[in-house]
Design a protein around this nucleic acid. Structure first.
Length: 135
DNA sequence: GCCAACGTTGGC
DNA sequence: GCCAACGTTGGC
């Protein structure tokens, strides 16, 4: 079991959209580092859903339901998509501020390389975030 | 709205 | 293959 964090601009596609759709395909990644992470995802992996820009918080928990396949939005075979489904919202969103303030989470990619849109999360970090959310 | 960080592109 | 220029992202 692996843990991940995906980032989305809520104005483009946010947690509420995922809940409404039940599941979605995570496409449009055009960055090699993020793409490599997508390829590493396995069915059943847990995914933290983070809102960038306006919210800057982890708002929900999702799960990988289909592993990497050719991104349907392009013919270019360099890019892949995965399917994720909404599991549950976090009781309290965990803000970037909280994450930065937490010693356990200071090594996260989210803090160190803020532009990466798909990143691995350690189990310890994953658990810490859920703890902070009060779930 | 600004700016820093960083990835990508293209000329050499 | 290197590096400058440029575009995009995201935090503030």
């Amino acid at each position: 079991m692996n843990y991940w964090l995906v980032k989305s601009d809520p104005d483009t596609y946010g947690w509420d959209d995922l809940v409404r759709d039940k599941k979605t395909f995570w496409d449009g990644v055009r960055n090699y580092a993020a793409r490599n992470n997508l390829k590493e995802m396995n069915k059943g992996d847990q995914v933290l859903f983070y809102h960038s820009q306006t919210d800057k918080s982890v708002v929900g928990l999702a799960e990988v339901v289909k592993e990497a396949y050719q991104d349907p939005t392009t013919d270019d075979d360099r890019w892949v998509a995965v399917d994720i489904k909404a599991v549950k919202p976090l009781k309290n969103p965990v803000t970037l501020k909280q994450i930065k303030a937490n010693k356990m989470l200071s090594e996260m990619y989210l803090v160190r390389q803020s532009r990466l849109s798909v990143m691995p999360v350690k189990k310890k970090e994953f658990d810490t975030i859920l703890e902070l959310s009060g779930s």
